[in-house]
Every structure is written in C-alpha cells, then in structure tokens.
C-alpha cells in the first residue's frame, strides 16, 4: 500500500515538472500582456512535431533536436506576437481572444495538413526498461524529462530574478506605464514574454512528445490543462503556476491510481471546479506576485 503511494508520488512529480513548465509560460503571458493565449497548446504540439521532424526525418541528435525545437518555439512565439498581437496592443480583451482562438485553429490545421492525422513516434536514445529503486520504478526517459523540466524552471527563475531584463520584465508586469518611464521598451518586453512563454510550451511538447505519441490534436487537452494549472495557481502568478502544475500532476496520478484510470484527465478539472468554488483567487494567496 505504502509502496504504491510512493510510486504515484514519483509519477506525479515527474508529470508535474512538465505541467509546471506549461503553466508558467501561460501565466507569464497573461500577467505581462493580459492576453488569454489559446495558442499555448498548439505551441506544445509544435515543439513535439519539431522534435519528430528533426530526429526522425533529418536524423539529428536527440538532445540537439530538443534544443532546436525549443528555439523554433521561441521564434514562432515571437512571430505570433509581432504579426497578431502587436497591432492589437490597445484592443479589448475579447477581440484578442477571438484572434488567438483563430490562430490556434490555423496552427492545428496546418499541423494536420503537413503531418497528416496519424500519430507519430519519436525514437529516443533511452532504454525502455525502468530503473528500479526499492519499491519505485521509473523509465529513464521520464527521469530525463523531469530533470530538464526542473533545469528549465530554475533557469527561468534565475533569468527573471537575477538579470536586468528579468527585473525589467517584472517591473512591466507590475506597472507598465512607470516601467516605460524608466526606459523599458514595453513592446519589446511583450515580444520577449510571448516568445519565452511559447518556448516553454514548445519545450514541454518536445520533452513529452517522445514519452507519448505526437498527433495534431495533442495540443487540445494540454491547452485546457495549462489553463487549469494557471487557474489553480491564480492568474498571472508565477510560483502559483509551478505549484498548480505539480498539484495537477499529483491529482491525476493519485486519481488514476486509486479511483479510475479512465477518468484520469477529469480529476484535474474536478480540482479546478473545487478551487474555483472555494478559493477563486487560486491556491497561492498573493496575486500578481512575480519572482
């Protein structure tokens, strides 16, 4: 009994790491830009497809492909911001939402068109036999995915907390007009924020694509889950998104383990309904707290 719980805890932690990546990207974009980013799930799918293309079609090294897929996600995010969001800087939130829903549809259908509807597998250099430590077993690939996710989270936190550009981003998050009086180019911060947030989504997709399979609709559920994570942590709350990511990972793993595997994805949404009913401001108290 205890052993099983420990196994679920490990699985939940491993899953939570990538959920945290997804949530932080989305909440950062909302916090800085007040944009509800419906393309987030598609950026996740994009990262996965890029790894597939680079590894399976171009025969590139797996690790190099992960880095390139993430960078391509950053580039796509920058492009979306410059082409779609920059002209809508002062538009109302409804118009921006509609445009982002449209952009998500275009991205998803482009994937369908380019790659077809059949799911793809990505070969990895990891062996398929699990590592066993005492009562707990975990696949080496999943362990690797978790380690990279944590490294990205730490790197991202250092960027925000310790660098000039990170301080400027946090200042813009808190008070854009006063930040501009300090000489911050708010437009540039928006482009960087969207590109970085998209890069985190693409990194999550690049990491999880090889764990599962890569398909054009993979972004749908993940996009919804990313919103769930962000709502759990409180909109625009970065530590909240990390905590929300792990919370969702645990709820899914324990729910699937003890209650029902079929309803795995439902447990997360059940949790959100509960949080919204009891604590609508999110799990973490300080709203708009960043860094």
């Amino acid at each position: 009994m205890m052993d099983q719980a420990l196994q679920h805890l490990v699985n939940g932690t491993v899953l939570g790491g990538t959920y945290a990546l997804l949530g932080i990207g989305l909440t950062l974009i909302f916090g800085v830009m007040r944009v509800v980013n419906f393309t987030h799930g598609e950026l996740y799918a994009f990262g996965a497809y890029m790894v597939y293309a680079l590894v399976s079609l171009l025969g590139l090294n797996f690790y190099l492909s992960l880095v390139l897929a993430t960078l391509l996600g950053v580039a796509l995010g920058a492009l979306v911001e410059l082409v779609l969001l920059r002209p809508l800087r002062h538009a109302d939130i409804d118009s921006v939402m509609l445009v982002m829903i449209g952009a998500a549809l275009v991205l998803q259908n482009t994937e369908m068109w380019v790659w077809g509807g059949v799911a793809k597998m990505v070969p990895t250099p990891f062996v398929g036999t699990p590592l066993v430590v005492g009562p707990v077993s975990v696949l080496p690939l999943r362990l690797f995915v978790f380690a990279v996710a944590v490294a990205l989270l730490v790197g991202f936190w250092l960027l925000l907390d310790r660098t000039r550009i990170g301080t400027a981003m946090r200042a813009t998050f808190q008070d854009p007009q006063t930040a501009s009086l300090m000489g911050v180019r708010v437009g540039l911060v928006h482009t960087m924020t969207f590109a970085l947030g998209s890069g985190l989504a693409a990194a999550a997709g690049a990491l999880l694509g090889p764990v599962f399979v890569v398909s054009p609709t993979m972004g749908d559920l993940v996009g919804l889950k990313a919103f769930a994570i962000v709502i759990l942590g409180g909109l625009g709350n970065l530590p909240g998104a990390a905590i929300g990511g792990f919370a969702l990972g645990y709820v899914e793993e324990f729910g699937a383990g003890y209650l029902s595997t079929e309803y795995r994805d439902a447990f997360g949404f059940l949790l959100i309904i509960l949080v919204l009913a009891i604590r609508p401001q999110g799990l973490v108290a300080a709203r708009e707290r960043i860094g």
Partner: peptide, 12 residues
C-alpha cells in the same frame, strides 16, 4: 514597483 525590492526599484 510593489513587488520589486527597494534595491531593484533603484536599479530600475
């Protein structure tokens, strides 16, 4: 900037 430290505000 309420959530930046005093030092970070000065650096801004």
């Amino acid at each position: 900037f309420p959530h930046l430290t005093v030092r970070e505000n000065l650096e801004m």
